[in-house]
Design a protein around this nucleic acid. Sequence first.
DNA 1: TTGAAAGCGCTAACAG
DNA 2: CTGTTAGCGCTTTCAA
Lengths: 341, 341
Amino acid sequence: MASMADVARRANVAVSTVSYALNGTRPVAKATADRIHQAMEELGYRPNALARGLASRRSRNVALIFPMLERGLGLTEMEFVSAAAETAGDLGYHLVLWSTPLGDTDLLTKLTRQGLVDGVVIMEVHLADARIEMLRRTGVPFCMIGRTGDNRDDPFADIDFESTIRDAVAHLTALGHERIGFINHSRASFDAGYGPSVRAARAFEDAAGAHGISRFCDDSPTAGRQIWREMNAAAPGVTGLIVMNERASAGVLAAIAQHGARVPEDFSVLSVASSERVAEMTYPPLTTFHPPAAELGRLGVQVLIDRLEGREVPLVQQLIPCRLVLRDSTGPATRQPGTGN
Amino acid sequence: MASMADVARRANVAVSTVSYALNGTRPVAKATADRIHQAMEELGYRPNALARGLASRRSRNVALIFPMLERGLGLTEMEFVSAAAETAGDLGYHLVLWSTPLGDTDLLTKLTRQGLVDGVVIMEVHLADARIEMLRRTGVPFCMIGRTGDNRDDPFADIDFESTIRDAVAHLTALGHERIGFINHSRASFDAGYGPSVRAARAFEDAAGAHGISRFCDDSPTAGRQIWREMNAAAPGVTGLIVMNERASAGVLAAIAQHGARVPEDFSVLSVASSERVAEMTYPPLTTFHPPAAELGRLGVQVLIDRLEGREVPLVQQLIPCRLVLRDSTGPATRQPGTGN
DNA sequence: TTGAAAGCGCTAACAG
DNA sequence: CTGTTAGCGCTTTCAA
């Protein structure tokens, strides 16, 4: 593997000149630069990332801290990770994946102290998140996907659950649904302070008020089925459903079918924050507010790297709403004679 | 950040002794080692990954080369990536994600020459894969997920499509289905030499022979719907379907329903290599041969790291079959009076 | 059982 | 505009 010394020798210059030519850290005469670049070309030279990082104290690596969940990762997360990796690459960085248990601050501390990465993008942030406190304390540059409860001056990108839930309620209300049910993630996730669960629950209460009824639900079709039955028994007037639980949504649809009712004629089911590819698998395909997974991934690493490069950037704390895609699971609350729907 | 010199000073030894104590590269007196470890503890010392890598010429990083596909990545890939990251961590390595366009050998060459990683795990290997040739040529240690056509002495882990498809055909045959349809990925993927498409097609031909009818299909519900209609028209006797195309499977189910037929009473649909979480979303939930995604991820990095550590390991070329999970989309070919099915 | 010292390949003063 | 040189924090001979 050709080194900088090889290039310098071949171009008849000092290694430092090669370095300067390579990084543009200092002006280099056109002729010299040309010779250097040619030499690099001929040798197939690529700077050694480790040496460069060691000498400059900047590894140009960033880590993506991504949680080991019992729940498992979904397609949304996959999209997110892809976008993050791609963006890092585009900006000349490498993305390393740190799979850590959610509560394991010690492991995270160990990892960050190794000097392998300049900063981290951290997923699945909870309202009270010990990992964030640790990052603040140790001064590791970071960008959150999600955000803590004590909204301080740290950069984040998150889904705008408030507006999304509001829009979801409005969508169903506009279709004439007067009582609206909300099916959230598990109670455990809510109690653990999982941002989406907590924020969506509050937002639903604000938006639907007395017209709303809300339930927690484990992330599985079976749980979805049970919860719908229970909710339908408790509040038979509910014809519009907002389901923020991808796996449960299939169960909800199944329970409605088993009940002898139809979607969307009798019940409308609106899925929130579930991926396109899952929404199109159900019968009927789910009308959905899609999460901006790729945008979040891109933004997260972009914001982090901006900070690392010391650019004078304003603090980014961005909320992105989910985008509505109409499919076949929502419709008017009561059949309108003559419309055929 | 404490360095090795700090530790050495505090423990009254030479830096080299600290290094030896840390890595066990040379025996160190118990008392000395204790002092050193205590000093490390007190300083919160963590060896600098970059320096270590530079000096030892072993970064202890491995890359996962994962493709940017138009098709998009699925849940199977997500499981795979998770498992790979976790395994790498367990073995004291870091996993770097390289998102590269499938054909871009140049980019890959550049990346591997940076000396950031000791080896790579490479996904989505095609029968004739320029990237593999490049890795062989440049001597970069690697492990494939999938395999090339010219099966040489390179390590790989792959799904055993041959046995899986055979088992799938057998499953339907045992249920009394006499004519069996196979819905593959797109023709383009087959023509491009995408391993799964090609191997499964061959395997189906071998297993089903004249009883089988096979079709390519783009990865979308819409395409699935069309293909089923076309196939049903061309071969009305087909009652058993094998679908190796996750996204198309929803379309197949929808087309059957629209046709006024039922699953599994009239048609059996057996999904191959699709993830659990997608299989449970459809109506009815799909009986599926699940891909061993996590095993492949784990195995891929394990095998690679074994090689990197120079362990005397036999060449690993492992085929893992998909595992059958019965759900509700397959059943006997004709209703048996009295069985209630 | 331990130490001293020469690098690993690069960056960034400092000096001209 | 360019060169010299002292590190970055570690590993690994070589020597004791």
